[in-house]
Nucleic acid binder design. Structure first.
Length: 809
DNA sequence: AGCACGCCGACT
DNA sequence: GTCGGCGTGCTC
């Protein structure tokens, strides 16, 4: 019988980042369990917050009077043993608050909203009642918080005992319900009711018969109407006569495009595997059978049938009465891949992606939590799906940088997967055509087991790739996004009624407004970057802080009218393409045209139905798309990423070009790829042209070795920010001193340097990058630095730590 | 985060 | 003399 409970409260600060001990009141005895949400008093006054039970009956050194838990928010724990442990590990690994790592694992709906309400408890001035309280006797404090006059007025009234501040912890988690009907009488009583009916009350008579057939059951009213053929009005009469009652029935929200498959739906059969696939599948399935928590790197060229190996591994796990988790990068979480999994495993599948509403996400989460779904497909955060007894975890496109969250907690889904694999004694499958250097290097060392698929399933060669040097093109024809060669091929496809995909590599691109007379570039007043033109809203926007201003007609610096937009945006390319090939029908896909929910799918569907000849887009079109009629893929600017100060820029360029090349000639028709570049001799482009991952890997490893980058070193990035640049710089210099003193001599400390975007949201940023092979002091030292520099207000230096950063910029 | 306690300037 | 500014420290 639990007397005490250790609770992590929803106050994300360094000082409160530890469990607090509460008493379990007698009325809640035997009900409080690990992983439940509770409402607890915290701090002075009547403040209440949400918390999570992370321990029971552990002794406490606290000498003060313990407070008691106010209420339970759940009947069943929302976090099981595995995820509770994982949340602690995650907080430790990513240097974040325990409460934050708990919340990243749960759907947003489980985060209760804590509101402050001001209540009138005694007669107050009529004008106050009217003006401030709008005639009501209570007020949501959040609505007046920003008005200092009202705030001080309310505080005065509080002192005089006229009003009281109260806290309300409101749970947002609501299950959607529909009306259900339930017979109130038993069979005989219903029969009895029939005798008192008028002879012509035929509908009521039928209702009674129907109710007799469902005694003791609860049926959705919609279903009842359909089955019985009776109208809603008849059921209402039944309620009036006391024959039946209406009760809410909990139902799941149905995400668009995720409608349940019909009951008689035939699940798709597994496809036959070729020898390579079979060999890989055998190894994975053996590990599933033996409950081995090893890691496989499944390296397979585009079209080599990795997905089928995934699906059969999942089938194996299910066959062993276990569950399976499959992660896909958000960008390739397309209906195509999702449908393939659902056709194979039907209603066992739950899908988690960013397009779901909060309610839909919550419902999918509950289906998984209740064990109603045994297969989960989702993007990064789906790695926290509340599956139990996992048999296999798959990460498709494991090299994708989107598996690393770029805000706190800065976790990498691959590392979380490995943790869960160990906990569940389940193998991990990392799949990619172009594995990350880290993973491939581990496979070479034997840490992971390498499984290779070297041949395409359809035995077709990969499409030939033509690299076009844009330098002479520009010299001869002036500024253009299209080489003659690409234009010729596009026109040719048009004539043959075939389709083309054009990709504009936007990585690292800044489009900006510049004055042709004085060279002034329009910049964000808060951040250190140029503003981007958004034609949909006709404004200039800052991508970092969201600042927005009208498009200027005159240069704000010199007043000249010659202020123009620079940078290769998709819109501009579309305009050029329209003027070059007026008869071509173009679909443009970029952030602007796909912002609205469902637009992404809609545009792809239109293209799939050949409502356009050319699909023009940014990186988002590079992955997973499979259009049989596409025979030409063009990359307009292959090298924009190469000049970036990022040690992974070659790797990313190689990946991107390899991915996009795989989009051509998926079916019977022959495909071809055109890559336009200003760096035709760059090794990333050369190796991509030859489809030579092995060559690229060796070359890039040599360079990483020379420069001391991953995978030869582990890295951590420390960032400090302050409103005053000098303060941020000084804080970092101090930290560097501390690091140098305490870390191992083999550890390399770079910086401090101002970040590439030195100012963001009115703060200046400095960073230090630590490179190490093995350093036993590092982790605890970083924890200590965080403790010491814990910021209390906006006037303090803010420190953040990014383990294994994706970018150093 | 939110709240109280506490120590210095401009006011009924 | 007091009201209230926000720096500091604590929350089981």
């Amino acid at each position: 019988m639990a007397q005490l409970a250790q609770v992590i409260v929803d106050v994300p600060t360094m000082q409160t980042n530890r469990p607090y001990t509460y008493q379990v009141p007698t009325r809640l005895e035997n009900q409080v369990k690990l992983g439940m949400r509770v409402v607890v008093p915290f701090g002075n006054g009547k403040r209440q917050v949400q918390g999570f039970v992370v321990g029971l009956d552990q002794p406490t050194k606290y000498n003060g009077q313990l407070k008691a838990i106010d209420a339970l928010m759940d009947l069943q724990p929302v976090i099981g043993d595995e995820l509770l442990r994982l949340s602690k590990w995650l907080a430790d690994q990513t240097y974040s608050f325990w409460i934050s790592s708990i919340y990243t694992m749960l759907p947003n709906m489980l985060k209760a909203k804590s509101t402050r309400v001001v209540k009138i408890v005694d007669e107050v001035d009529e004008r106050v009642t009217f003006d401030v309280f709008h005639g009501k006797d209570e007020l949501d404090f959040a609505t007046v918080q920003s008005n200092p006059q009202i705030v001080s007025l309310l505080l005065k009234l509080q002192k005089r005992g006229k009003v009281r501040f109260e806290y309300v912890v409101a749970d947002k988690a609501k299950a959607k319900t529909t009306v259900g009907i339930r017979p109130q009488l038993n069979f005989e009583e219903l029969e009895e009711a029939r005798t008192s009916l008028h002879a012509n009350a035929r509908a009521q008579n039928r209702l009674l018969s129907y109710l007799q057939s469902i005694v003791g059951k609860t049926i959705k009213q919609a279903d009842a109407e359909r089955i019985s053929g009776l109208k809603a009005a008849t059921f209402n009469t039944g309620v009036q006569k006391g024959w039946l009652t209406k009760v809410p029935i909990e139902v799941y929200r149905t995400p668009l495009g995720q409608e349940p498959l019909p009951d008689d739906h035939h699940l798709a059969k597994p496809l036959a595997l070729n020898d390579e696939q079979q060999a890989a599948a055998d190894k994975i399935e053996q590990a599933i059978d033996d409950s081995q928590s090893r890691v496989f790197l499944l390296e397979g060229v585009t079209g080599s049938g990795k997905t089928e190996v995934y699906l059969q591994s999942i089938a194996k796990a299910l066959q062993n009465h276990k569950t399976a988790l499959m992660l896909v990068p958000e960008i390739s979480l397309t209906p195509q891949i999702v449908n393939r999994v659902r056709r194979r495993f039907g209603s066992k599948v739950a899908v988690l992606h960013s397009g779901l509403s909060a309610g839909e996400r919550f419902d999918e989460w509950r289906r998984i939590n209740r064990g109603e779904a045994q297969v989960v497909v989702g993007a990064r955060s789906a790695i926290f799906a509340p599956l139990t007894n996992i048999g296999v975890i798959i990460l498709d496109e494991e090299h994708e940088s989107s598996y690393k969250q770029d805000e706190a907690p800065r976790y990498h889904a691959r590392e979380v997967a490995k943790w869960r694999g160990k906990y569940n004694d389940a193998p991990i499958v990392l799949g990619s055509a172009t594995p990350s250097l880290e993973s491939r290097a581990r496979a070479m060392k034997g840490v992971y087991q390498l499984l290779q698929l070297k041949h395409r399933v359809n035995k077709r060669p990969l499409p030939p790739i033509k690299v076009v040097d844009m330098r002479p093109e520009i010299k001869e024809r002036g500024e253009s996004n299209f080489s003659r060669e690409l234009l010729t091929k596009l026109t040719d496809r048009l004539a043959k009624n075939e389709q083309s995909i054009l990709m504009l590599n936007r990585r690292g691109f800044s489009s900006f407004m510049m004055c042709r007379d004085c060279g002034e570039v329009l910049k964000c007043p808060n951040c250190d970057i140029s503003l981007t033109l958004h034609m949909d809203s006709h404004t200039m926007k800052c991508h970092y802080c969201g600042h927005e201003e009208p498009i200027p007609r005159f240069c704000p610096h010199c007043g000249s009218r010659e202020i123009r937009y620079y940078g290769t945006g998709t819109e501009k390319v579309e305009r050029e393409l329209t003027s070059l090939i007026p008869q071509a029908r173009i679909i443009r896909m970029d952030v602007d045209t796909t912002r609205r929910k469902g637009m992404h799918e809609k545009l792809l569907r239109q293209f799939g139905q050949h409502q356009a000849d050319i699909l023009l887009g940014t990186q988002m079109i590079a992955k997973g798309l499979d259009f049989p009629n596409v025979t030409l893929v063009g990359v307009l600017n292959a090298d924009t990423g190469l000049g970036l100060p990022d040690f992974r820029s070659s790797e990313r360029t190689f990946d991107l070009l390899s991915q996009v090349s795989g989009r051509a000639g998926r079916a019977d028709k022959k495909g071809e790829v055109v890559i336009q570049t200003y760096n035709p001799d760059h090794y990333a482009i050369q190796f991509a042209q030859k489809n030579d991952y092995e060559g690229f890997f060796k070359r890039e490893m040599t360079l990483r070795h020379q420069a001391g980058y991953p995978p030869y070193y582990f890295t951590v990035r420390l960032m400090a920010s302050h409103e005053d640049e000098a303060v941020a710089a000084r804080a970092m210099a101090q930290i560097k001193e501390q690091l140098t003193k305490s870390l191992m001599p083999s550890t390399i400390i770079l910086g401090p340097t101002p970040r590439a975007i030195a100012r963001m949201k009115r703060r200046y940023y400095y960073q230090i990058v630590i490179k190490y092979k093995q350093d036993q002091y590092l982790h605890s030292l970083l924890q200590k630095i965080l403790q010491e520099t814990q910021s209390k207000g906006k006037n303090d230096v803010q420190i953040s730590i990014d383990p294994d950063p994706q970018y150093f910029m």
